[in-house]
């Protein structure tokens, strides 16, 4: 498949949890300012793979990788890469909305605060801008000082997206961002993804075939730690090359 400008790239990537070989020589390049979906049955390694791009697996005892992950052509696993700098560039949204037990405002500006930014004007402007980008501003603008835990699940998830946008990343990783949400909230998240890809490179893990079909430009199918097939989403869903892909997307397993 032709990639115009590759933002993220994995080269001969192997990953292990102790003795378990979780990812097997993955090679993939992901288009800038596009949505790439990872699909595959549970335990196929897609979430593990997603988490290698912001090194969230680093804290897991016994986890190690071989091979390279490139962000803008630069290996992010070399010793001179600072993980906090990397994560400013590569934001992440999790499966279950995980707002901090603080106010809505403090949730959004947390990423700036830990960078040491104290200027109130910058914090407030960023807060408003990020919430607007996440299509949440109108719903929360009058209660920024209220606890984020009082929001609905869908609002919480958009808050988590706003929080990730506030530190101006260029990549957003989404690990099944709508799987814990109702259909209406899911639709809002999907609309949001469509908007965000104008400015951001998005990688989304999903269990929902229809969702992958709706939001993504490219789709990668993982099975038992291998990247089985990677193609334009339309191509993959209409004429999959591999029988395993075909079986999966037609719902025969998984």
């Amino acid at each position: 498949m032709n990639i115009k400008h590759s933002k993220l790239e994995a080269i001969n990537l192997d990953a292990y949890y102790g003795d378990f070989h979780a990812l097997k020589s993955i090679n993939i390049a992901m288009e800038e300012k596009a949505v790439t979906a990872f699909i595959g049955p549970s335990g196929c390694g897609k979430s593990t793979f997603l988490r290698t791009f912001n090194r969230m697996n680093d804290y897991i005892d016994g986890f190690r990788i071989e091979g390279q992950i490139l962000l803008d052509g630069r290996d992010i696993y070399t010793d001179d890469v600072r993980v906090d700098e990397l994560r400013k560039e590569v934001g992440m949204v999790f499966q279950k909305p995980n707002p901090f037990p603080k106010t809505i405002y403090e949730n959004v500006v947390y990423g700036l605060r830990i960078q040491g930014i104290k200027d109130k004007k910058i914090l407030q402007e960023t807060c408003e801008k990020s919430l607007q980008q996440a299509a949440l501003w109108n719903e929360v603008k009058d209660k920024l000082d209220k606890s984020a835990l009082a929001l609905s699940g869908g609002q919480q998830q958009r808050l988590c997206i706003a929080r990730a946008l506030a530190i101006q990343p260029s990549v957003i990783l989404m690990d099944e961002p709508a799987s814990a949400l109702d259909p209406i909230s899911t639709a809002k998240i999907e609309d949001l993804i469509y908007e965000l890809k104008k400015d951001y490179t998005i990688v989304i893990v999903t269990h929902n075939m229809q969702q992958a079909g709706r939001v993504s430009d490219h789709t990668a199918f993982f099975y038992m730690g291998e990247l089985v097939e990677y193609a334009k989403t339309k191509t993959m869903f209409t004429s999959p090359k591999d029988t395993r892909t075909q079986n999966y997307i037609t719902g025969r397993f998984g």
């Binding site: 969230m56 994560r87 934001g91 707002p99 901090f100 947390y110 990423g111 830990i114 530190i167």
Partner: peptide, 21 residues
């Protein structure tokens, strides 16, 4: 919950910042 720590780390916080904040 683990998810709170993950959320903090994912925004670039260090371990100490995550513990403290």
């Amino acid at each position: 919950p683990r998810t709170i720590r993950d959320g903090s780390f994912a925004l670039g916080a260090s371990k100490w910042q995550t513990v403290w904040y």
